[in-house]
Amino acid sequence: MSAKTETAPSAPQRMRPVVGHDNREWWDHINEGQLTIQKCKECGTLRHPPRPMCWKCQSLEAEHMPASGKGIVYSFVVIHKPVIPGYEYPLAVAVVELEEGTRIVSNVVGIEAGDVKIGMPVKVSIEAVDETLTLPLFRPAS
């Protein structure tokens, strides 16, 4: 009798970010529970997403500073279709403007997708979305 192996049908997961040289530190901080913003060591310019060179002064030297996590919804969408496995619909995705001035794209959670508004104050909430992926999500601030 041939040996048979069975694997449980795995739950569909969110697509993974591509982590490489230029953003590993940023994702490491997320995995430690801290939202950060990359800062040029030469001229102090903040940038997000992290990149290897400063567009102001072309310095390759940068560090990551903690962000307050507070911001407002700068724009948002509510996605209905297509339905991709691993996500719940309708799905709210926003461009959040952080109080430090940089912007970040994420989901807005803890609120009906239809109730998200431009200008709404939000705060970061770093959450494990499955066993191996932690993401910075945003929740209404008040």
Binding site: R51, P52, M53, L60
Partner: peptide, 8 residues
Amino acid sequence: RSELQVTL
């Protein structure tokens, strides 16, 4: 380092 950094 990244290919982008090598490029830059």
